[in-house]
Simulated assay, not measured.
Amino acid sequence: MLSSNGAETLATAERELASGSDSIRVGAELRTAGVDSDLIAAVLTQAELRRRAAAKFGPLAELLLFTPAGLEQATRAPIAALHAARFAEAGCRSVADLGCGIGAESLALASAGIRPHAVELDPFTARIAEHNLAAVGSEAPVTVGDAERMPLPAEVDGVFLDPARRTAGHRDTRRVASPDDYSPSLGFAFAHGDRLPTGVKLGPGLDRELIPDGAEAQWVSSDGQLVEMGLWFGAVARPGLGRAALVHRSGRGSSPDEAHELTAPADTPDADERPLGEFLYEPDGAVIRARLIGSLAERLDAGMVSGRIAYLTGDRAVATPFATGFRVLEELPVKEKELRRALADRGIGRLEIKKRGADVDPAALRKRLKLRGAEGATLFLTRAGGRHVALLAERL
Score class of each variant (00 low, 15 high):
Ser4Glu: 15
Asn5Pro: 00
Ala11Ser: 09
Thr12Asn: 11
Ala13Phe: 14
Arg15Asp: 15
Glu16Arg: 14
Ile24Arg: 14
Thr32Ile: 14
Asp38Ile: 11
Ala53Glu: 03
Ala54Asn: 07
Lys56Ile: 13
Gly58Gln: 04
Ala61Val: 09
Glu72Tyr: 13
Gln73Met: 14
Thr75Leu: 07
Pro78Glu: 06
His83Ala: 02
Arg86Glu: 11
Arg93His: 12
Ser94Arg: 15
Cys100Gln: 10
Gly101Trp: 12
Ile102Cys: 12
Gly103Val: 07
Ser106Glu: 04
Leu107Pro: 03
Ser111Ile: 00
Ala112Gly: 05
Ala112Glu: 08
Ile114Ser: 02
Pro116Ile: 10
Asp122Ser: 11
Pro123Phe: 10
Phe124Asp: 15
Ile128Leu: 07
Leu133His: 07
Ser138Thr: 07
Pro141Gly: 12
Thr143Asn: 04
Thr143Arg: 11
Thr143Pro: 05
Asp146Thr: 02
Pro153Asn: 08
Pro153Arg: 10
Pro153Lys: 05
Gly158Lys: 04
Val159Tyr: 01
Phe160Gln: 00
Leu161Tyr: 11
Ser178Cys: 12
Tyr182Ala: 03
Gly187Ile: 06
Thr198Lys: 02
Asp207Leu: 02
Glu209Phe: 02
Val220Leu: 13
Leu226Trp: 00
Phe233Ser: 08
Arg243Ala: 09
Arg252Leu: 13
Ser254Asp: 15
Pro256Phe: 06
Pro256Trp: 07
Ala259Pro: 04
His260Thr: 08
Glu273Leu: 00
Tyr281Arg: 00
Gly294Cys: 05
Ser295Trp: 09
Ser295Cys: 08
Ser295Ala: 15
Ala297Met: 10
Asp301Ser: 10
Gly307Trp: 11
Ile309Leu: 15
Ala317Val: 08
Val328Glu: 03
Leu329Trp: 06
Leu329His: 02
Leu332Gln: 03
Glu336Cys: 00
Arg346Tyr: 10
Ile353Tyr: 00
Arg356Thr: 00
Ala358Val: 04
Pro362Tyr: 08
Ala364Lys: 09
Lys367Asn: 10
Ala377Met: 06
Leu379Val: 08
Arg395Cys: 04
